[in-house]
Each structure stands twice: as C-alpha cells, then as structure tokens.
Nucleic acid binder design. Structure first.
Lengths: 141, 141
DNA sequence: GTGGGAAATTAGAATCATTCTCAATTAGAT
DNA sequence: ATCTAATTGAGAATGATTCTAATTTCCCAC
C-alpha cells in the first residue's frame, strides 16, 4: 500500500488479525498490551489508553479486550477473584503472582515438557486449555 | 437446650480443627462438602444446607467457607470468573472442568512429579501455592 | 460519491458474586 | 450467673463485568 494509506496513527498494526478487523480502538489497546508486558486489568487499560483515545469508554475497552481474546490475539488471565488481566504472550506459559509487589511474571515451561503427560487424566479427555498459576514471593536476591 | 451432650447433630466432626472452633454451621457445611465431592459454589452450599439449618444466611455460608479455607480445612477453587467453588480434597491436585456437563473433576499428578521442577522460575522464588486448571470435554467413552 | 445495512462504539443502567455493617445471639471463661 | 469475645443473620453496599439502546463508523453496491 504505497499511496498514503488511510491508516490511523497506529501505523504498525495490520488492519486485520485472525479475522478480526482492527479498529482504531482495538489497535491502540493491542499496542498498549504489547508495549507494557505487565498484564493490566481492563480498568488499567482504560486509564492508560485515554492518553491516545480520550473519548473511549470502559465498555469499549471490555468489548475490545473480549474480541481480542476471542480471536486468540491476546489471553485473559485470572487470579482467584481478582479483576481479569490481559496478556499479549500467546506462547504456552504459566503465571507467577508475586504477592509482595503484586506483579505478574510469565513462567515458561522447561523444554520438552508436555503438561498433560504428567497428569492422571480420565480416559477420553479432550483438553482445550491449561492454566497454571503460582503464588508466592520473589525474595530479595 | 436441655443438658445432654452439648454436641449437635453433627456428631462426627470434632469441635475444633486446625485451631478453628467448629460451630454447628461450620460442621454442617464441612460435612456437606465431604459428602458430595462435587465442588459446590457458596450458593449451592446455601441451598443444600437449608435442609439441616433452615435459618442459616448466605452471609454465614460465606463466612464459614472463608474460615474453613483460611484454616486449611478446605480449598477454594476458581474457574475463570465463575463463582468460587469449594473442595474438601487437600491433596495437591489440579482441576478439570468438563465444558459439556459443567462438572469439575480432581486431577492427580502422576507419582513423583514435582511441578516446580518443570517450570522456568525466576531465581529466589518462594512458591506458596500452585493451581492447575484444565478445561475441555470428557468425550463419550 | 451516495445510500443502506452491519458492525462498532458509547454512556449509563443492570447484574450478580461477594463483602460489609451492625444488631442480636451464642459460647467460653471467670 | 456474668462478662466478653466470637459468631450469626438480614440486608445494604461494592465492584467487576455485562447489557441496552442510541449513535457513529465502516464497507459495499450502485
């Protein structure tokens, strides 16, 4: 697309991902998530995104996040009953919740590990999703 | 109430567990959970417990469940943003959520498995709790 | 370009699990 | 029996999320 594309400010996000039309709001939210890898809540996204989209509503933030999750562009992460958090890392990974600081860290699995091999699953089980969550402290080194 | 053993109907639950005084309400709720190993929600507990304690309030069910969780007598289990469920199984185990029926199954780990060995944890991490949740279907055998 | 229908956005109301408040009751110790 | 702290119960409050209904925007055919 040579001629000055009718592309919005969000110039590095394609106009469609996984069949989801990337509107300006979806682009900005996606960019925000990619930028800070900090697993923000919907409300945190809402507050930060206002810098770029001053008129956005919280409902739109929820709508966009849900659309992105549904189209497997981001992941939704839940810790107990806390507000949902959103994560742009699509690799299979777990999450560590540092109780001291409240921060979330992605946890990779060691190479060659297949979680389902380690579990005593009932026969004929089709697993669609696995979630691993750790809670604890990152002791001062 | 006349003399006699001041023991309530719940005659097989001790008067104290892990330092928690087992009031009638706590006993009945604990018994219910032990009986049906079905991971009920607070509201399900509330509805079923009325058979034995017709005057109990939902707030008390929440209070009791929280007290039991706090004293490590039962576990609280969360699936995404669904209402919390409660589980009397204290062994380390995961949970499989069958999307077809909505039922929850406890998942044991295969013998000799230590989860943390398989994860690429940051150094100096003290893990207090691990949660593993699977979602999928139990295909008709 | 213009018009029409579908999709997306918005603000605010509604929902619902959970927590809070506070008065009444109960239990355990003195 | 009395005192004090813990527990219970009813209803109100909270807060994350979803819903509703009214615009607004987008895309496509003409």
């Amino acid at each position: 697309m040579t001629s000055q594309a009718q592309q919005s400010q969000a110039n590095d996000i394609p106009e469609e991902i996984n069949g989801l039309r990337m509107t300006r709001q979806r682009q900005e939210i996606y960019k925000l998530l990619m930028g800070e890898r900090c697993h923000p809540t919907a409300n945190e996204v809402f507050m930060r995104i206002k810098e770029f989209l001053p008129n956005i509503s919280l409902a739109t933030v929820y709508n966009c996040l849900e659309a992105l999750v549904q189209h497997h562009i981001i992941r939704q992460v839940n810790f107990d009953r806390e507000p949902s958090r959103y994560c742009p890392n699509l690799d299979e990974h777990g999450h560590f919740h540092d109780e001291a600081t409240g921060t979330i860290h992605d946890i990779k699995f060691k190479p060659g590990i297949n979680l389902t091999d380690l579990l005593d699953l009932p026969p004929n089980t089709v697993i669609k999703d696995i979630e691993i969550t750790l809670r604890g402290q990152l002791s001062a080194s």
